[in-house]
């Protein structure tokens, strides 16, 4: 089965990459774009029946930095 982890900087943590992307979109004439935030997506092949808690454990230990990042886990059967 596949597990997908989405990692984003926490609210309140400055995201200069997101800001730069937003600035570039404005430069290209895409008006009306508000705040832009950039994150990352990690896809994992894991054994069928793997519980979300195990993936969250991976996030806490390695995949995310809980000091600055929030993460969401999605499991696809």
């Amino acid at each position: 089965m596949k597990a997908t982890v989405r990692i984003m900087l926490k609210k309140g943590v400055l995201d200069p990459q997101g800001k730069a992307i937003g600035g570039a979109l404005h430069g290209l004439g895409f008006e009306g774009v508000g705040e832009v935030r950039q994150g990352k997506v990690i896809e994992l092949d894991v054994p069928d029946g793997t519980e979300e808690g195990r993936i969250r454990d991976m996030c806490e230990k390695l995949l995310a930095n809980p000091v600055i990042e929030d993460y969401k886990v999605e499991l696809e059967p």
Binding site: V13, L14, P16, Q17, A20, N65, V67, I68
Partner: peptide, 16 residues
């Protein structure tokens, strides 16, 4: 920082 021997985090430079 990543081993948590010291607290906080190191982000991309503000200027990118």
């Amino acid at each position: 920082i990543e081993t948590h021997l010291l607290p906080g985090a190191l982000l991309k430079n503000k200027t990118l």
